[in-house]
Simulated scan of single mutants.
Amino acid sequence: MEWTGARYADKPTVEVRTWIDAPPARVWALVSDIALMPAMSKELQSVAWLDGAAGPTVGARFVGHSRHEAFGAWSTTSHVIECDPQRAFAWAVQDPAEPSALWRFRLRPEKGGTELSQWMQLGPGRSGLSVAIDRMPEKEQKIVFVRLREFERSIASTLEHIKKQAEA
C-alpha cells in the first residue's frame, strides 16, 4: 500500500496491490462489472450504467450513490476514461476535465495469475472533502490524510473481495 500527497491541491493518491491466483480474464470480468462493487464497499450503496450503456467502454457513464457517516449521502456521475480489457479500467468522477476523483484498476499477468492494483486520486475538482477543508483550512493535511487512510482500507477490502471471488 502506498499513498502520496498531503494537500488536496497536490492531487493526493493511494494505491493497493494484490496477487490473485486466477487469469486476467477472470479478474477482468469482476473489476469491469460495476454492479458487483456495492457489495464490496461500505460507502458505495448502488451503481447503474447511464445512457443505455451495458458495460465499460470509453465515454460510458454510470451513477453511484454513496453514504458516509461524516459526509451523509450523495450521488456522483462517473465517466469511463480508460477501458483496456484484461489490463486497465479507469473512471473520472463528475467532470472528466476537472474530476473530483480518478479511480483505476490495473491488471498484469504475474506468476501464472494476475497482479491487480487499484489506485485513486483526489481532485483536482471539488468534492465533499473540499467542503470540510473550506470549513477547517488549518486541518487540511489531517483531513486529507484521514480520507486517504479510509480509501486505503476500502481499496484493500475491495481487492480482497475480488481475490476471493476470482479464486473461488
Rank of each mutant, 00 (worst) to 15 (best):
G52I: 05
G72P: 05
V80G: 03
C83L: 05
S66P: 08
P38Q: 15
H79A: 08
A53R: 09
Q86E: 15
S66V: 07
A101F: 13
K42N: 11
G72Q: 07
F89L: 12
V47F: 02
A39M: 06
V80S: 13
A73W: 11
L50W: 12
A97Y: 10
E82S: 13
M37P: 03
A73T: 06
L102D: 09
A90F: 02
C83K: 06
V58G: 08
R87A: 15
A92Y: 04
V93A: 10
A88F: 01
V93S: 04
V58F: 11
R61I: 09
M37V: 13
F105K: 06
W74E: 04
M37S: 06
A29V: 02
E82Y: 02
V93C: 03
L30N: 05
A53G: 11
V47R: 02
S75R: 06
L102M: 14
A60H: 13
P24E: 09
L107Y: 01
A90W: 00
H79M: 00
V63M: 11
A70R: 14
R26K: 13
T77E: 09
L36V: 11
V47I: 08
V58I: 11
R67Y: 14
I34L: 08
R104M: 01
W74Q: 11
L30S: 10
A97M: 12
V93R: 09
E69I: 12
R106I: 00
T76L: 07
G59N: 15
A35H: 10
D84E: 14
A70C: 02
V27M: 09
Q86P: 12
S32E: 10
R67G: 07
A97K: 15
S100M: 12
S46V: 04
L30W: 14
D84S: 14
R87F: 09
A88M: 07
S78I: 00
R104Q: 09
S46A: 10
F62N: 01
T77K: 12
P24T: 05
A97D: 12
S100W: 03
I81C: 03
E43D: 15
W74A: 08
S100P: 03
A53H: 09
D51C: 09
W74F: 13
A92T: 01
L50T: 04
P38G: 13
V31R: 15
H79N: 08
R67N: 10
D95I: 11
D84I: 08
F71M: 09
V27A: 10
W103S: 07
P56H: 14
D51P: 05
T76F: 06
L36C: 13
R87T: 12
D33M: 03
A88E: 07
V58A: 12
E98F: 11
C83R: 02
P99V: 01
C83S: 14
E82M: 11
F71K: 07
A101Y: 01
L102Y: 12
